[in-house]
């Protein structure tokens, strides 16, 4: 077991430093790059916070849907292949729900301010 602070706490500390202390000092194209850098650190922080839980639920759904076991990567590859072959489609019970849940979890990390995501989130579950 590694010591603390956790990667989440460390990444967040760097992001906060860049945002509060460095951003006011920088202008022009470098300011744009700095904003991208801060966005990346925020994304990494969200992923470190959420990935474990969302991967576990994704694997659980994929096992039920595919009737097989494997890592989240293996199971995704298997699902992609079955859809490509036409063995699984939107008429398959659970597929639409699975894709929606998985995609919402991805957006929560990648782009939580994306308008389509916010709209779907407001529908509630």
């Amino acid at each position: 077991m590694q010591d603390e602070p956790t990667p989440i706490e460390l990444t967040k500390a760097v992001a906060d430093f860049l945002r509060s202390d460095i951003t006011p000092l920088i202008t022009g194209h470098q300011a744009f790059k700095l904003r991208v850098a801060v966005n990346i650190l925020d994304l990494v922080t969200r992923q470190l916070t959420q990935e474990e839980g969302s991967d576990a639920s994704e694997v659980e759904r994929l096992r039920a849907l595919l009737g097989m076991d494997g890592s989240v990567t293996e199971l995704n590859r298997a699902l992609a292949e079955r859809i490509a072959k036409g063995e699984v489609d939107l008429a398959t019970p659970g597929l639409a729900e699975h894709l929606w849940a998985t995609t919402m979890d991805k957006l929560a990390v990648d782009q939580p301010s994306y308008a389509s995501y916010r709209r779907e989130l407001s529908r509630g579950e």
């Binding site: 850098a37 939107l90 991805k106």
Partner: peptide, 26 residues
């Protein structure tokens, strides 16, 4: 570049938009 790396993380935007087109909810 960081910008290019981050564009890779925008693919999921098109996934939600494809689902909204092909498997709309409610």
């Amino acid at each position: 570049s960081m910008e290019r790396a981050m564009i890779g993380r925008r693919a999921s935007e098109t996934e939600i938009d494809l689902l909204r087109l092909l498997a709309p909810r409610g």
